[in-house]
């Protein structure tokens, strides 16, 4: 019996080895035909970043990314297998073939473009400067001599420090809501917030008279495929184009962010 057990274990190990080899081989390229013949499409979506990607009360993935992923499934006429991914897991999951492509609020950067291939942007958020009722800012130059609250270590802090408006004082808090609180309490002249967060706060505190001044930068997010999947990327770009002209993408954007998708330069 012992020998039988040993043989069984060895065979299982070999089987797993072959299966993982096959998985690696599959990771080398994914064509549209592969996906159609498999009968379902595996899409990586972001989790833990509302409203772009989160889980609902039943534990199912939901959010902007999930709606877009389901639209894509509709265009492919295939059932969608959603794979929720945390930010650092997104690109590795794509590279190891765990997902066919990503719809995971991934911003194109030069560094990332060396490892994955990006489509046209399918979502975007604005980084807004929001002020109180008694003053409104229209440009970075207006922030001269003002106190601007930001979330420590955020992309808006980096962008504002880079902008280096003379006389502007950057006041740092631990999160977005405390930064907004500083503005409401009059301890800061403005706060820099992602538009999604900013609009939620404006809605919740109508009495504070907060107003959006201007957008000082815009982050576009793209779907991503593996480096060699040109065919898949071209198909996704076409699908994004179709979602844009049919108004489907605007509907998703309005549902989750409260406004249609902003116009972004394409590449």
């Amino acid at each position: 019996m012992k020998i039988l057990n040993y043989v069984r274990t060895t065979l299982t190990a070999i089987a797993i080895g072959i299966a993982s080899l096959a998985a690696t081989a599959e990771a080398s390229a994914t064509t549209l035909n592969d996906i159609v013949s498999r009968g379902s499409v595996r899409i990586g979506v972001l989790t833990g970043a509302p409203p772009m990607g989160m889980v609902d009360e039943k534990g199912n993935p939901t959010g902007y990314d999930v709606d877009v992923a389901n639209l894509i499934g509709g265009y492919l006429s295939l059932p969608v297998e959603l794979v929720p991914l945390t930010p650092p897991a997104r690109i590795p999951a794509l590279q190891t073939g765990k997902v066919d492509f990503l719809v995971a609020t991934l911003a194109p950067t030069g560094e990332r473009a060396k490892t994955v291939m990006f489509t046209q942007p399918y979502s975007a958020f604005n980084m807004d400067i929001i002020s109180g009722p008694d003053q409104k800012f229209a440009s970075l130059a207006d922030l001269k001599g003002k106190r601007v609250a930001v979330n420590r270590g955020s992309s808006q802090e980096t962008a504002l420090r880079k902008a280096a408006v003379p006389g502007m004082q950057i006041v740092v808090f631990e999160d977005d809501s405390t930064s907004a609180q500083a503005l409401i309490a009059g301890q800061a002249d403005a706060v820099a917030l992602p538009s999604t967060v900013g609009e939620a706060i404006i809605k919740q505190r109508p009495d504070a008279g907060l107003q959006v001044g201007f957008t000082f930068f815009q982050q576009g997010n793209s779907m991503a495929t593996k480096m060699q999947d040109f065919e898949l990327r071209q198909w996704l770009n076409t699908a994004i184009y179709l979602m844009k002209i049919s108004g489907d993408l605007d509907k998703v954007a309005t549902k989750w962010t409260g406004r249609p998708m902003p116009t972004l330069p394409s590449f």
């Binding site: 006041v171 609180q181 500083a182 409401i184 309490a185 009059g186 301890q187």
Partner: peptide, 14 residues
């Protein structure tokens, strides 16, 4: 002190 007092008109720096 920092966020509450401004509500009653007493604003002090950090």
């Amino acid at each position: 002190v920092y966020f509450g007092l401004p509500g009653v008109g007493l604003r002090v720096g950090a």
